[in-house]
Design a protein around this nucleic acid. Structure first.
Lengths: 255, 255
DNA sequence: CATTGTAGAATTGTCGACATTCGACATTTG
DNA sequence: CAAATGTCGAATGTCGACAATTCTACAATG
């Protein structure tokens, strides 16, 4: 189990991590694998994570595991107490709703920043093309929700990578890979099950692209938020059925 | 130099880290000290940080230093490249403006969440009382900008600690201590130099508290953003004089 | 002259061992 | 009997050493 590429499997073809392209380090692999395990519920909320046990599990030592656990804390999946260890946070429906709300305001700010930049014509062109692709996908009735979610994510990525605010880009990118948001969005979509929702979302993103093209930052932000809030509500409805929990109505922010 | 409490200075009075209160670990101390050094410009942007050198400097070993450097990456002060090391990011005026903008949307979301919670009467009372204190301070003409900034920060803290979204609270708290925002706000205020700005800010926060008391989340968010944008512009004006740089006009988002 | 290839040096990644701390349980004391 | 104290086991924190990679300089070649 736990197929992390160990040290001694030194292949003749080196992993080709050329300048700039981040190599896939062992702590990263452990963090990803452990993170998905947490998100899959293999570790219950409140459970303690032992460094030694994880090290044994991945045939590694405690050093890389420590680093991986620190990374999971950064992603918000475990809580760390000095000299006491790491505990798995429990993923409530409220927390998931919060993630959507946070994503909404951050992505909204990114949209605003892109709209305020006069020097991003090729990004706008790329967005518009992606959005028409999105609409084409949405027009069909037999689209895989996972694939559609990925396409939507890519569209957002094209946008926020152009916002010229490194901090914000980093936050959004970190959220994408490995955190709660990443799982919700990529590995287990909770929305886009109906053709109507897919059409609606495709239309939203087209509106966003258009608003950016017209330099209307306020409108772009508004539509981004609306799109995310809609997805949040779709996800909440799904989860409510799946898990039978109730959600704090205060989380359902609008406009 | 670098007065980090080393391991061998085992005092007879143990640091009394009782249950829940986080102890001050050595990596944390190193990260804080190094972070402030970076923010003070003792490390130039683009400069490489050597683990061994830092370990020597703090009379520690490379393990804790590695952890400290990872923490600095989380705070956005260094950039990490696997197997290549850590580089200091350069702190441009654009980046500082970005931090204000990000803070504005996150704090705005927190305000909204507080306003949406019906069960926070004592927090609202505390906020209102703090805000009247703020107005009293602002009424005087000889207030220390640093003290005023701290008071404003406390008011915001009272608010967002009540927003009942752990992820958001964590993000805002982390930002407060040690990151770029923390320094800007606490150690080297860049706004609140004029009595007018202080009065304006005190009024803004009173408005925010009132909007929350009236459950008007949208208005609370609007005023939070306005307050932060005003501070951003004040800070930018100060920094433009101090450093003689220009700022990307696209950063000056409004409303 | 520019480019490529190759050593050597420096740095990061990993590992096992030891020191220290925390929590649980047993014991003692009022 | 309750509360405080002492002891013990297990986990985290720290350290030094080794392995692997990357960087730098320099030489060889077209």
């Amino acid at each position: 189990m736990a197929s992390v590429q160990s040290r001694e499997t030194t292949q003749t073809t080196t992993p080709r991590n050329r300048r700039g392209e981040r190599a896939r380090t062992i702590p990263e692999q452990i963090a990803d694998h452990l993170g998905i395990a947490i998100l899959n519920g293999e570790y219950k909320g409140g459970e303690r994570i032992s460094e030694q046990e994880v090290a044994r599990l991945y045939a590694s030592s405690r050093g890389p595991v420590r680093e991986a656990i620190r990374a999971l804390e950064k992603r918000g999946l475990v809580e760390l107490f000095p000299r006491r260890g790491a505990w798995v946070v429990d993923i409530t429906l409220d927390a998931i709703a919060d993630i959507f709300n946070i994503r909404a305001v951050l992505l909204g700010l990114a949209a605003r920043n892109v709209a305020a930049r006069p020097d991003a014509p090729e990004a706008i062109a790329e967005m518009l093309s992606h959005c028409s692709g999105l609409r084409v996908q949405a027009a069909r009735d037999d689209v895989d929700p996972v694939a559609f979610a990925l396409a939507v994510g890519r569209t957002g990525g094209i946008m926020y990578r152009q916002c010229a605010t490194p901090h914000l880009i980093r936050m959004l990118r970190d959220q994408n890979q490995g955190s709660l948001w990443g799982l919700i969005w990529r590995e287990r979509p909770l929305d886009f099950f109906t053709a109507e929702r897919r059409r609606e979302t495709a239309q939203d993103w087209s509106d966003i692209a258009q608003a950016i093209a017209q330099r209307d930052g306020a409108r772009a932000e508004r539509v981004v938020r609306k799109a995310l809030y809609d997805s949040r509500d779709g996800a909440m409805a799904t989860l409510k059925v799946l898990r039978g929990e109730t959600v704090d109505p205060a989380k359902f922010i609008r406009d």
